[in-house]
Design a protein around this nucleic acid. Structure first.
Lengths: 235, 235
DNA sequence: CAGTGGTCTAGACCACTTA
DNA sequence: AAGTGGTCTAGACCACTGA
């Protein structure tokens, strides 16, 4: 009934090669034109197959660089008390972090509302990108209330912020409100992650409170195929 | 720098018409060939524009029926104690439920592990699909431990299962383990939701426990652009 | 510079739905 | 039967990358 079209059968064959390890995780696929020759299909069909596998999270692309086999998903608890760093170590994944910017500036309206401050009040904004096994998969933007975090810009901001909040500033985090949705990446965020504008992502918003004070607000954009979330829920 | 290509400018123009209400939520877009004529582009470019808007969650398609403007996202707390039914009512959304199948059968390995039973032990399996504002957006598969739910197949299974568990069987739910990930729909699930095989979805797995007993396991597949999740987290 | 993916054209046939 | 989206071909040029 199904699997009769050219692009579906090409996708199935590639999937098979990925499954049996002929194409290893992280490795580059043959170029689109090679695939056309190898499998006797037009480039449109080859690309349709690649798009299908991309939607399924089997492969991903780096803008104009090529198509690559996806590594296993990263498992993540957004209500974490532990840092992503620690989590990655537990899963034997290599994690790297790059600081993109850090400054004191006025927060977007929605963030100001989350932080319960006036929209004209400046906050610390820290933007970073993070890679799991060398692939950039996470863009994070953290907003810190100025009053609670004196001297924040002098801290080592490429290191764990969770640890910094806990140890340098002495906050014990007890409650977090979390919001998860699917959202397209805008052009700037997409470029940082080396993907196309509009690429679907999992957006996670987190309001961080300590002793009934909202002290920070974070926004994370995860490439949708790179992450799996675990939440321990209570009634 | 950007927005110079044919498909991007077409996408932008459609987005504008959706934004200003010229194309209302739920309404059908002009056919692909009409768009080609109207905007003087090839069909490939027109489809690229539609795919972009689809990835952004602005529009969706029903297999071979056409493209439609997406209604607002449904907001949902997966650690809910209230039923989806009640939640929809609160958001003034119309919700409908259709029972697809219900039977006593052997559970898949992964589910048996979640339920902490042997892989050969039969469980009640209830499959349903649900629509928000007439669009099928959710496929749910519930596995109930046989011993805790005598006579389950005689219950009104198109009604709220949350309420049934609570009132007919007398369980008060206190804890739930939840797993959220992006997953492609297999062909059977896709057909029930009238979308294409491989279409990305948000998959939610929930282990339901009451008094430290695992009584049920649920799996939900949400169309990724239809839902936003709110989680109240604690440390 | 050669090769890559990204974009694009102008056609075509098929499977399916609706009238 | 007419119209839709789904698939497909065989080309083409461009922007960008890496050697």
């Amino acid at each position: 009934m199904n699997q009769t079209t050219a692009y579906q059968s090409l996708a199935a064959r590639l999937q098979h090669r990925i499954g049996n390890g002929e194409l290893a995780a992280g490795s580059k696929l043959p170029s689109e034109r090679s695939l056309c020759d190898m499998f006797k299909v037009s480039r449109v069909s080859a690309r349709d197959a690649l798009h299908l596998l991309e939607a399924q999270g089997m492969i991903y692309r780096l803008n104009r660089l090529g198509w690559f086999v996806s590594p296993p998903v990263f498992i993540y608890d957004p209500t974490r008390s532990s840092s992503i760093q620690e989590e990655a170590h537990r899963q034997c994944r290599e994690l790297s972090t790059e600081l993109l910017s850090a400054s004191l500036q006025v927060a977007p309206t929605r963030v100001a509302r989350g932080l319960e401050i006036s929209p004209t009040q400046p906050v610390y904004v820290v933007t970073r990108r993070r890679a799991v096994d060398k692939r950039w998969v996470l863009l994070e933007i953290c907003y810190f209330k100025e009053e609670y975090f004196p001297g924040l810009l002098e801290q080592p901001l490429a290191a764990s912020l969770t640890v910094m909040v806990r140890e340098t500033y002495g906050f014990s985090i007890r409650e977090m409100d979390i919001n998860i949705s699917s959202a397209p990446l805008d052009i700037e965020h997409a470029q940082h992650l080396q993907v196309r504008e509009g690429c679907p992502s999992l957006r996670l918003e987190r309001k961080v409170t300590s002793n009934n004070q909202t002290i920070a607000f974070e926004r994370e954009y995860w490439l949708h195929d790179a992450i799996q979330m675990r939440v321990k829920g209570r009634d």
